[in-house]
Structure formats: C-alpha cells, structure tokens
Design a protein around this nucleic acid. Sequence first.
DNA 1: TCACCATAAACCGATTCGGTCAATAGGTTG
DNA 2: CAACCTATTGACCGAATCGGTTTATGGTGA
Lengths: 204, 204
Amino acid sequence: MEKFLSLPSDKQKSIIDAALRCFGINGYKKTSVSDIAEAAGISKSMVFHYFGSKKALYFYLIEMCGNLIMNEVDKSFDKSITDFFERLKLVTSIEISVIKQHPPTLAFLASVYFEKEEEVRDEIQAVLAGGDDFRNKIAFDGVDYSKFKASVDLKLLMEMLYWIADGYANQLSNKTDIDFDIMLEEFNQCLDMLKNNFYKEEYL
Amino acid sequence: MEKFLSLPSDKQKSIIDAALRCFGINGYKKTSVSDIAEAAGISKSMVFHYFGSKKALYFYLIEMCGNLIMNEVDKSFDKSITDFFERLKLVTSIEISVIKQHPPTLAFLASVYFEKEEEVRDEIQAVLAGGDDFRNKIAFDGVDYSKFKASVDLKLLMEMLYWIADGYANQLSNKTDIDFDIMLEEFNQCLDMLKNNFYKEEYL
DNA sequence: TCACCATAAACCGATTCGGTCAATAGGTTG
DNA sequence: CAACCTATTGACCGAATCGGTTTATGGTGA
C-alpha cells in the first residue's frame, strides 16, 4: 500500500479513476484486474504490487470515496442555509467538487451500494453501516418549505427533482472533459427556473 | 429458432427478459450464457438449443426490441398532437407499453447503442443504421412551442426534461412489480405541474 | 415397447481468472 | 565502467469459466 501512496499523485489519480470506473460499470465480480490495469495503462502485475489483491483494492476505493465525500461535506455543508433551492445548489456543488477530484466516484458508490457478490457483500454492509445516508437524511434537514406556492405538490416536486438529480448525475459521470462547471451552471439555472415558477411572489 | 418460438409464450417472455436484463447490465462480452440461463431458470444447454449461439441470441433480441418499439409507435404515435406536454405524455405512454411487455427493453437498447465489443460492434452499426432516432428526431416534430411564457428558457427546459426522462426511465427499469401505471400517473402529474407554471395563462 | 424429443448434466478445448515470480530496464552511486 | 537498486514487466501458475457439444435421462404418444 505504501508502494502506491509514494507514487506521483497524478499517476495515483489515473489508476484510482480507472479502477473506480471499471468497478462502477461492471461490479466487483465482472471486473477483472486486467481490465483495470489496461484502463490505467499499467501492467496487471503492478496492480497486485500496489494493492496486494483485487479485494484489497476494492475496499481501499470504498474507504477513499467515503473519506472524499465526508471531507467535502465537512468543508462546505452549511445547515444555516434553509432556502430549499440554495440548499440543493449547495449539495450539488459538493457533489461536483467530489466529481472534479475523481469523476467516477458517485457511479462507483452506487454500484457498491447494490453489489451482490458474496465475496464482498457482507464486508460492504459492515462499512456502509458506519456512514449515514447523507443525501436523504441530512441534506434537506431544516429546510424551509413555506416559500412554495400553496398549489405546488411538494411530494411530486421532490419526486421530479429526484429524477432530475439522477439523470443529471448520469450525464456527469459520462463526461471526461471538464465541462463540469458548465453543467453545474445549467443545473443552477434549471433550479432558478423552478424557483421562479414555484415560489410565492414575495420570495422572488 | 423455431424451437424457441414454439415454447409457451410466458416461458419465452421470461427467457427473453432474463437475457435482456443480463446484456443490458453487463454488455455483450461480460454477459455469459450461464448468467442468462441462471437468470432464466433454465440450463445453459437450452439457450444453445433455442438460439444456436450467444451472438445469435443477442441479435435476435435487438431485432425483437426494434420491432416491439416500431409496432407501438405505429399503433399509438399521433403527429396531430401538437401540444408539447401532450406529445411528451404520448411518447412516454408508448415507452411504458413497451416496458410493460419487456421491462428491460430500454436499458438493453441503450447498452446496445454503446456496445464496444468488436465481435458485435460492426453488425450493430449496420442494424442501427436502419432505424432512425425516434426519440429526438420524430418525437418532437411539429410541436407548438408558442404556448410557453416568454420568460421560459426552452433550451434549459429541454435539458431539464432530458434529465427527468433519464432518471425516470432508470427507476422504471428497476421496478419488477407492475407499478408502471402509478409511475406513469406521477410522471403525467409532474408534466401538468410544469405546464401550469410554464404555459401562458390563456393556454391553461 | 419403441421412437421421439425436451431437458439437463457432464464434458470439451480454449480462454481468462486472481495471483506469483524471475528477468529486465533504467537510474544512481561509486 | 561496474555495482547496485528498484520499478516494472511478460511469462507463467493452477483453478475457474468461457462458448459450445455430447451424452444421459425421463416423459409422451403410438
């Protein structure tokens, strides 16, 4: 493991991202170490030299992603922002800063969440039990919903936003370029549009 | 092939859906015939007995899905509906009726579209060249955009709807139950909500 | 009883799996 | 140049799995 950590950080990053992407797309069992090595542009032997085993690499990635997200949340999350859309923008900006560091992070974690392979399943559950579900439990805690027009069906709006977030995240993970900021800007404009149409006049 | 077609139709359906789901999730190369057989609850030998080879099965599925969609479009698509949201509902209802027959269809076709395995890539291109891109080219042809408030950014709205549709379809493909109708109803309500807020007063 | 056929289990050679290891290439130091 | 060191690799291992075939089985109709 020290072997890997003493690598130049850009090489670390490319290896990590390759592994995240492979596991994220194909899951644990269907991802071979050869796949990862090829995607990272190194030989298969090096993967074992750095991480010891496929399983060790997998859980190293899980831990790393967890820390990455927790750090960003600690750094930027602000409970005092109670406006619904501002809070949403904040959460999204956190996601973007995670993705900027390692683009396939979210897709990887999603695949981890649904991983079924018995060789890793139990251990995943143990790790996952530690970190709470940030997105749903904390993200919208303390938000002020009273600014919406009475005619707005909040449950429906949340459902719609969930779909939007899902499709939005999907597109993000496909981007290799750094048009993250462009997409973030589009997403924020999208929220502004919703806000302008769904908020009571006095809050615009 | 006649062997398969002379099967009871519910057994045909379960085998087809299992294969669609496997290929849709893991792509051509990473999907083994054993995976499909296991998911379908039959022995591996039977898959070869029915379809001859993995590749033959794959292209049978592609053709079947293509026909499935084309039939539904021919049956239900109505160019004379020019209202943006009504057209969207129509397209969605077509998708739903496809999914009702074979739930993993859309995910499978998406994966086919992005398939990279050289053993099938060229042949896919040849088949895909035949059918045009229904969703983007035909679906919104002749739609009346003048009903929107001047303040609505149509490009942004389309982007948002694209995300919604993506997230919505994602959730659909995960459902095993037949709560399709519930989700379709939710989606339509969601569109109504957008319509109520984005259309000029006189068109409500 | 026999012929037939759907089905599954056992099996085939080839490939790929996770993982190891000896050889090498390339830089550093004397 | 020689001696060393270490990052990296291609060849290799036994085991598993691949796509595909063959054989064994059990039921059905004549």
